[in-house]
Design a protein around this nucleic acid. Structure first.
Lengths: 297, 297
DNA sequence: GTCAATTACGTTCTCCGTAAGGATG
DNA sequence: CATCCTTACGGAGAACGTAATTGAC
């Protein structure tokens, strides 16, 4: 037995005839000539291996076998309609979901605007934002828990990446600090004994620690987890620190100064990473584009 | 948007590619040239309105949209397979059901053999036999509770009928009855004052009552429901009766004689009736044929 | 005699295969 | 450069339409 081939149009024709019980009218409904329609029904019956309609030239009725088939076909047709409709919804971003991991600084500085614009354009798509440190974000990406991760660059061969920005670093100190009124400083100048650090797990710390000038300074200052804490410590005159540009919003308080560190080597890349193999969903692609656009602003 | 057309082969192709992730191999599996296969996938994607596969010339993977579609298609394809398989089963009488109403006499005399042969040929088809009096059988047929009814003929324009047999009637009496040794009798002779009747609801009684000779005799003998009772009464010498041929098995006992009634008007037709409009299922048609065959035997 | 489904036959269009093109690792 | 997907193009077969045929009421 050769495998059968049957199409959605065939199903339409079958159901039309089942309902109208009239070849001519069913053919019209299907925008077919009556003859073509008749042949189509014939082919369907051949495929099915059973006579589905009982026809005298006067009356057309379903056979008992046809009646059971009607129910099946209705169900199948419904499923198909749903499947395609669901696909259209995804394509036109009427439904969907997108998950993004972003560095806390990025999550606070960029993402609110990005998400606002995204939701305005795609109100029915669920957006999930995870503010995760660099390593955690990449882990989530690797596991497929997020569609993309915004992180600080290092060994990212594993992923497809777009560099969103190359950040400068800033010395943050109180206004009574000796360097407080400089227009810029060198890293060597900044990395004095009063330098405070973030916890070793942070990407900023790791980035800094890789710099010879910082390493040489072997500061033994305080070490904290959160930038807000760091900001408060500096405001108290307990030391200084060096932080990337995106985190400066933590340090906008009275008596604090941020002085750009002039050091060509001291830049960190903010990158948008995604899986190499796995394609982005349409919803995710739109978010991807939105993030890139934001970084250019 | 023009309405889409998609066929079972398209689904096969889609799933093959989704599984192999390789155009050439998937094409082979579908017995298609690689080029034709590529076009087919292209058409499917056009129908869907979404890119379903992500292809670099080296790797083929499902897009997120394609992944959701795979699940739907699998389900749809399964349903189709089942629908067609079910139809084949019905066509080849591997499954099904047939219900027959038959006069009690027919149910006892003919149907055991009919059903035995039918089940031998169609072991998986469920057979239901209702031994119902003429009126009840026709009512069941009218309501669609049975596929056919074997009954005694009268006003059957409503149905499509086949006359299975035209039955003679027999006088049944004890061997000491004056007519006991006749080779045949007339209805007038048989319808003496000692004639006993079945209940008025039985078709036999109605048939007899319609005969002038019986009507004139206005017998006031006993009246019972069951032929077995009648048989016992006659054996006791309490009277005689006139019954159709098919019921004679009730009267095969010692000292009872059955003498044919020679009266051209006194025949009853055993007919096999079915709906005019509603077609018989394949299972039912086979039973229909079997019943007709039995009546000729 | 009319209405309606089937059959006949010529036409159109979809789908397939061969072959060339282009991209990727 | 080898692999493999895509595009181009010509041909075969399926599907369609017009028209004639058959059948039922």
């Amino acid at each position: 037995m050769r495998s059968i081939n049957i199409s959605t149009r065939d199903f339409d024709a079958f159901l039309a005839l089942a309902q109208t019980q009239h070849f001519t009218r069913a053919a019209e409904r299907c925008h077919l000539s009556q003859s073509a329609f008749s042949q189509k029904i014939g082919r369907i019956e051949a495929s099915a291996g059973v006579r589905l309609f009982e026809r005298s030239t006067r009356h057309v009725t379903l056979t008992p076998e046809g009646e059971v088939f009607v129910e099946e076909v209705r169900r199948i047709q419904n499923d198909m309609r749903q499947a395609f409709a669901g696909l259209q919804d995804l394509a036109q971003r009427r439904v969907g979901r997108v998950a993004v991991a972003a560095l806390p600084s990025v999550a606070a500085e960029w993402m609110p605007q990005v998400i606002a614009r995204y939701r305005a354009a795609n109100p029915r798509i669920k957006v999930e934002l995870f503010d995760a440190l660099a390593g955690a974000g990449l882990a989530m990406l690797r596991e497929g828990r997020v569609d993309m991760a915004i992180t600080a660059g290092e060994d990212l061969q594993e992923f497809d990446c777009v560099v969103l920005r190359r950040e400068k670093f800033f010395l943050v100190c109180r206004d009574d600090h000796p360097l407080a009124n400089r227009r810029f400083v060198s890293l060597a100048q900044a990395a004095g004994p009063d330098m405070m650090h973030l916890a070793r797990s942070s990407s900023v710390r790791q980035h800094l620690q890789a710099q010879p000038a910082v390493h040489a300074a072997h500061a033994d200052g305080l070490e904290v987890e959160h930038l807000a804490t760091l900001s408060a410590l500096i405001a108290q005159g307990l030391g200084v620190s060096v932080v990337p540009e995106l985190t400066l919003f933590h340090f906008r308080r009275e008596r604090l100064r941020a002085i750009v560190v002039r050091d060509p080597a001291l830049r960190r890349s903010i990158v948008l990473a995604r899986h190499k193999a796995k394609a982005l969903s349409i919803a995710a692609q739109a978010m991807f584009d939105e993030v890139v656009a934001q970084s250019r602003a």
